[in-house]
Design a protein around this nucleic acid. Structure first.
Lengths: 216, 216
DNA sequence: TGTACATCAGTGAACGCGCGTTCACTGATGTAC
DNA sequence: TGTACATCAGTGAACGCGCGTTCACTGATGTAC
């Protein structure tokens, strides 16, 4: 192994985060394992019923083990939601990547993806948005949320043939967000099937995108 | 006191519900008092942090007392939410009573009232709609919800110059509901002030009503 | 290379806590005669 | 009217439970020489 090789290796190691390296010690990746246990429990029973003890049982470790990786219960939930939001972002990019830029179809696809995420991961979605007190307040979470909304705003601007994010663009973006956000909650609560008659979800997503993007 | 007077009195007594009469025995109206305590706690700490014990402390009775009026903890929450929904209905009627029928202003006013309720009673609103598991499932709750949505549908039909609630009316009504529903959650989470720039809430409510009522 | 040492992920037991619900009871109130 | 009785709202103590977090510890692994 040459000196150069060694240096490259050292650089690669430095790029791996401290947290990840630590986990290799015993369990291997208890942190990731606990995040996954947290996710499953939140999906199964909801965030308010989630308990550290049960996550430990799922992961097969003692109840004290998580405190080597997370500050407290809340920190576990935050870490899990951050992972969820990253998944959500990836899927958003994937949803629009083959659609013509500036097309309302991209707005519709983003809306569809929002609803899909809410339906696929209702526990995570509601933990992120459904809390009343003890809202998850974490700078990183805030940052990811902002950045994700910016994606939508850029798409709205493109549809309107604009390059800047004007007040008008921001309002239309916010209206779209409000709509798919509320729709997600109502779908969770079965309100569309109970009270919507035979409304077609796909049609409605396209219809609202057109209505909100249309000039007055 | 004549025989007729006595009969009238007896009739008046019969009209009073059994439940209410019973409560006059000792405390007077412990049931109402516990519902109010439940409401305050849910507003202060959220439904998942609400405890029977604390409601008892607020009402100044022993922890066993509520079980003379409610089946269990869940029953207390249901009773409180039902009371909240009745308030909401009353305010909806008040909001539109002076506006010309068939006008989009009535739709806007109903939307405004929806958001107002969500902002004034966030704890109750989120208990009704924010739960993931252990959703409140009560036939009476369901019935009130349906009836309330029907009010909106009738207004939408009137705006479109229709008398029947067609599939089109139902879809537009559902789109309006989704919008104000999501908007309410986002307002709770401060998303409008954090990420909405200087969007005017009042303008947005009027704008979305127009867009959704407009012909394609 | 082999060995001695340092690190620190995970253990197991314990803690204090507030919870929802139950139980036999008490005593204020309404009612029948 | 006065009295004896029945009702049942509210009591106070107890229960078993699972929780979040802490602590001194153990022992597997990485590292320096």
């Amino acid at each position: 192994m040459t000196a150069q090789d060694k240096q490259q290796l050292a650089e690669a190691r430095d790029q791996t985060s401290d947290a990840l390296r630590k986990e290799r010690y015993h369990h291997g990746d208890l942190r990731e394992c606990l995040i996954e246990a947290t996710r499953r429990l939140v999906e199964d029973k909801g965030a308010d019923k989630f308990s550290v003890s049960e996550a430990c049982r799922l992961a097969g470790v003692s109840t004290a083990a998580p405190y080597k990786h997370f500050r407290d219960r809340n920190d576990m939930l935050v870490a899990m939601v951050i992972a969820g939001m990253m998944r959500h972002r990836e899927r958003m990019f994937a949803a629009i990547k083959d659609l013509p830029s500036g097309s309302p179809l991209r707005i519709k696809a983003l809306g569809q993806e929002y609803v899909d995420f809410a339906l696929n991961e209702p526990g995570v979605f509601r933990l992120k948005f459904g809390g009343y007190t003890d809202r998850l307040t974490d700078p990183q979470l805030e940052e990811i949320g902002q950045a994700t909304f910016e994606i939508v705003l850029r798409e709205v601007a493109a549809c309107l043939g604009q390059t800047d994010i004007t007040a008008d663009v921001r309002q239309r973006g916010f209206m779209l967000w409000s709509f798919v956000h509320g729709l997600s909650f109502l779908l969770h609560d079965q309100k569309l099937s109970d009270m919507g008659g035979d409304i077609d979800l796909d049609f409605m997503l396209g219809d609202i995108a057109e209505r909100i993007l249309r000039d007055v």
